[in-house]
Design a protein around this nucleic acid. Structure first.
Lengths: 106, 106
DNA sequence: CATGTTCATCGCAATTCACCGATTAAATTC
DNA sequence: GAATTTAATCGGTGAATTGCGATGAACATG
């Protein structure tokens, strides 16, 4: 994952409403969870929530699964893990970088 | 650290140029490192770089140390560590959370 | 086929962002 | 104290973001 991708995801995470949406999805993950549910949990219009969902979709942080008239959304755990790794690497790389990167002993 | 702060920092990290600036600062950390140096390393105007630096400053990711006519910048390692923790907590919280909420204001 | 539900998408307004050149402020140097 | 250096800030422009209500597509049901 390179800087552009990381920046992209960071921007997607860079809005309180989108963090709320992710948190909500996490808390409801095993049940049905459609756009309407998310909208009910927020003081925003349905269209606005749909937009935010699209941003999260584009960043690859969630996935859509059509189910009848509604769409079920869920967090992409694989991408979260990937992001965790990339972010760790970023922080690590910013941490007083030496001439070459090496895993330091604890 | 709450969602607004996290979102704020994420937004600060959500731009490739700002990631580049952080990486540059990390690579030069022990030497003098002023706005001009950063500007030279990027295809952007000085004013633009200064703006990005301000965003990073406001997010608390770097600090400024006046030194003669120039300002020396450096990464705030303490904040990076803090951020790492907060981010880990975020990812963790999104990772299939069990349906119990403990802290709830009435 | 008509109706209702769900939700993505389409305008549209207001705000913010990213970038630039020009200016200003502060410190140094002559 | 004038000139130089460094860099923050101002003003402006165009693009993107955030919010909304309204429209329309896809599906289910009467």
């Amino acid at each position: 994952m390179q800087d552009d991708d990381i920046a992209n995801i960071m921007r997607a995470l860079g809005h309180p409403v989108r963090l709320s949406i992710l948190r909500f999805l996490a808390s409801q993950q095993q049940r049905e969870c459609c756009c309407g549910d998310v909208t009910e949990s927020l003081p925003l219009a349905q269209s606005t929530v749909s937009q935010h969902i699209k941003v999260l979709l584009d960043a690859g942080l969630i996935e859509r699964k059509p189910h009848g008239t509604r769409n079920r959304y869920m967090i992409r755990q694989d991408r979260l893990a990937e992001l965790g790794t990339a972010f760790g690497g970023l922080i690590d790389g910013l941490n007083l970088r030496a001439p070459h990167k090496e895993t330091e002993p604890a």
